[in-house]
Each structure stands twice: as C-alpha cells, then as structure tokens.
Design a binder for these strands. Structure first.
Lengths: 269, 269
DNA sequence: GTTGCCAAGATTGGATATCAATCCGGGGTT
DNA sequence: AACCCCGGATTGATATCCAATCTTGGCAAC
C-alpha cells in the first residue's frame, strides 16, 4: 500500500490486538527501529498513527507506550460501540434485503459449526466478526472505519481485564438479534445489543494483567517473516486460515474461554 | 501540548474547516516547511495526522492534498453523524438531569439572540456547537472525539457544496429536539434529527467550488502570529471573541447564509 | 538509614544533508 | 499531431547531529 510507516503501524496494531504487546509496554523508538530495520523517523510516524487510533499514547520526551485505558474509558468505548451498533441495526431493520439477512445467518451458522468442532479460536474470531459484518452491511465506509477502530480498542481492553463467563449464549444473542431485526422488532433488538455488550463488560475486572509482558522484540518476532517488498501485502484474507486450528496466543482474543481462568497463554515464544 | 507536528496539524485543521484551504489544494512538504519554519519531517508528521482524521489524503510519491470527498462519502459522513446524534439523544432522554436541559435551552437562547442581533457568524457557530454540546452532555469522551471528527469532515464538505436554504428553521429544530427529548418522545426526536441533517444535505450540490483557492501561504498567514513557544497554546476558548463581529471568511463556516449565493467571501487576505 | 540533590547517561524531538524512486512537464522525434 | 525520452521537482527514507528533557545512580547531608 502506501508508506513504510503505515506497514509498521499495521504490524504494531496487530501485535497489540493479539495481546502480544500489553498496555503500558514501552515502545522505544530505537528498539523498534532496530527490530524493523528502519530509521527512527519512520517508527515515530508509525507511533503517531497508533496514537491517533487510540492504541498508543505518546508522552512528551518520555516516549510511546501501548495505551492503558482507564476503567472509565473502557466503559465509554463499550458505550460508543453499543451506540454505533444499535444505530446500524436500526438502519438495517429497514433497509436490509433478503441476501443480507442470509449472509448474517450464514455467518452465525459458521460460528456454530466452529463451536461444535471445538475450534474455540475460530469461533471466537467469528463472534467478533459478526459485529463487523453487521456494520459492513450498512454499506457506510465511514461508519465501518469508526466501528473497526472501536473494535480494536475493545480488543486492546481485553489485555487489561479478565472475562469469566459462558460465551456460548452470546452466540444465541447474535441469532436472536437477526431474528428481531428482520421482524422489525427494533426496540427489542437494540435492547439485546445493549445487554449483549453489557454482558461482556460485566464479566470484566480491571487492574489485573491477564497477559504476561513480552518485550517488543519477542512480541513482534512472528510478524517479521514477511518480506519487506514482496507480494502486495494482501493483509485481508489470510487470518482465518492461519489460525484454523492454532491454539496459540494469537487466536485468543475473544471473550476468553471459561475453562481456565488465568493461564490462558501457552507461552508461544 | 505535545509535539510540533500536532500544533501544525491543528493549524492546518483550522485552516481547512475555516475554508481557507479548499479540497484538492496541494499541501507540499517543502512549501509548508518554509511557511511554518520547520523541517519537512515535522510537516509530514502533521500531514499523517490530518490524513488519519480524513481531512487530507496522501498519495504515494505525489504528496498530500486537502481531502476531496466524493458525494458518496459526503452522504456517508452525514449518515454517520445522524446515527451518532440519534444515539446520543436516546441516551440523554433517559439520563439527562434538569441542569443539562437548562444548558441546552440556554445555548439555543444564545443563538436566538445572536440571530436577532444580526451577528450571523456567531449564530452560525452556535448552531454548530449545539450538536457538539449535545454530545458533550453524554459525558462520553470517546463519543465526543468521534463526533468532533465527523463534524470537522462535514465542515470540510461545505467547501465543496453550496447551501441555499433558510437556516432559521434549523434553530427551531434545535429547540424542538430539546422539547421532544425531555418529554421522552424519543421516536419523534430522532426523526427530527434525521430530518434536520437531511435538510442540510438536500441543500447541497456537489462539484461546485464555492470558495476560491488560496495558496497555502496566503491561507495560513493569519495563524502564524502565534509565537513558536509562547503561552501554552490554549486554543480552545478564543474563537468566540475573535469573531464576535468579524464578518471575515473565518466566520463563514455554517450553513451558508442565503442572502448572497456565491460571493460569500470578502477577500480577506 | 533515609532523604535529597546533582551530574552523567539515555531517550526523545527536531534539523540538516543526502540519496533513490517516482512523477510531471517540456522538447525533440517520427 | 502523436509519441517518446529526458531532466527537474517532489516524495520517501536514511544517517548524522544537536538541544531539551527524563531517568538513574551516586554522593552528601541530616
């Protein structure tokens, strides 16, 4: 795509939302420039991009750190996400055609199959993507980008907070949301979306580091295989295959599975 | 605040939303670095910030330009704005206390007085700020930032499109929205918000440059009075006084006044 | 032993000079 | 008139250098 700094920002973003870089982690310019093999300036530009997305915070003369949102901000992010999805849902209940509803149902079905197959990582990802799909069906790129940004920030939040609840009924929620929307029961649908997100938030407890801290060098190592200037950096369609059956840390960014309350990470290194 | 590039991004943002820099205008690195007296790198960082906010677009090896959204994107921006404000309104109708309603009414009253006094510039600005105030009352900083970004982009759009309608009933809209919300008539209120924004959009015609193109040097000259390192760059509270009775171009970023359809700008520079 | 201060080192923010790659425009050729 | 090629201009990026600031460690005073 465009610039080197964008590519580096993308890698850092991915590392953050996959919990390889945890909130508070120092992102030193020199260190990153050595890791990526670019100059400090390019790294700085990447960090500016991250900060604009709310994934990093830059403190003058102190450097950049992975963002560490307060509980207040976490609630605000979920509130905003709920608001956006409710609005989108309201639009869809009027405007979405049969093909759209079918696509939603098909997505839920895929997730159901993943759950049935015991592929928790994939199921989790599909659960995330349900919300993204919902917004994509609104055909509003501006809204999509806003929503994607909020989703990234909620994913970041999961590095800070623990979730211990049964996420299976969240799948039912998705299905019920579709039904309610298609039937025009908008009020109930938005109510359910609210409940859905509140269920996630309620399971969270702040001030508890779930993931161990990795140094940037360790955290970023897996992403550096990509050649600097190889195939046109088609970064959209690969993820699903990659983690089809991989239980590594990279796949664990959903509403954590309840079968283990603290030792989620199998120490991939 | 923080970095030099942020300060420059702020100035450029202001110049864009005040229509001194019009869509499509080339933002050359060398030119800007000379204007601001900084190195190209700082300018580039500022341009990255602008691009992230959707106010500029950077084309590889061609440089940065003031964003020139398509009609499609313009509609999407207004759609997103409507969605956000409807959601916020829904929250407020439940949660806002008497003090909040009073604040809203007082704001509308101030705008009414400005209209009565014939101070169109101020009235216009207050009309804009009504929406900002609405979102601020939701006490959600994340939502505020999203909304502010959308507002900036709509303001940018007004460089591309002409509005010729009577904006006085938009003031009535604000008043009615407050009434409906306070009475819990949420459905009607959200409907009115939608209509309100659609009224703005309907008055617009794309592909017509309303404002003449200024060179960046001309456009930015008024902002360069600020000393490089003087008082802590408190850029929040000044605007209102500045344009209290100033009919210059800087004040003309509302729903254009109908008394003159093309020669809005009194050629300040 | 604790506290506080100060200097050295490290890091960031920024400037400058330089270079390759790309884009644009003009002049010459066919 | 259409086409091609070349040179200037601009961008993307690097290396190096410098000032300001932050951190840290040690040293002195209490």
């Amino acid at each position: 795509m465009s610039s080197r700094s964008q590519a580096i920002a993308d890698v850092l973003t991915r590392a953050i939302i996959e919990h390889r870089l945890v909130p508070g982690c120092k992102l030193g310019e020199r260190e990153l420039s050595e890791i990526f093999g670019v100059s400090r300036i390019v790294v700085r530009q990447a960090l500016i991009r991250l900060a604009n997305d709310g994934l990093a915070q830059i403190e003058r003369n102190r450097g950049a750190f992975v963002a560490k949102p307060s509980l207040q901000e976490a609630l605000e992010i979920y509130d905003a996400l709920t608001l956006v999805e409710q609005g989108v849902a309201a639009q869809l209940s009027d405007r979405l055609g049969p093909a759209g509803w079918a696509e939603l149902r098909q997505h839920v079905e895929r997730q159901r199959q993943a759950v049935a197959a015991g592929n928790d990582g994939l199921a989790d990802l599909l659960g995330q993507e349900f919300h993204t799909l919902l917004v994509r069906l609104s055909r509003n790129k501006v809204m999509q980008e806003i929503h994607a940004q909020l989703i990234r920030r909620t994913t970041l939040l999961r590095s800070l907070i623990t979730a211990d609840f049964d996420y299976c009924n969240l799948l039912d929620d998705h299905s019920r949301i579709i039904d309610l929307l298609e039937k025009g029961r908008l009020k109930q649908a938005t109510e359910l979306i609210d409940t859905h997100h509140r269920a996630v938030v309620r399971g969270y407890i702040m001030d508890r580091a779930v993931f161990p801290e990795l140094s940037p060098r360790e955290a970023l190592a897996p992403y550096l295989d990509m050649q600097p200037e190889a195939d046109g950096a088609n970064g959209s369609g690969r993820k699903k295959e990659e983690l089809a059956d991989d239980e590594s840390r990279a796949t664990e960014h959903g509403h954590g599975h309840p079968h283990e309350s603290s030792g989620i990470v199998p120490e991939r290194g």
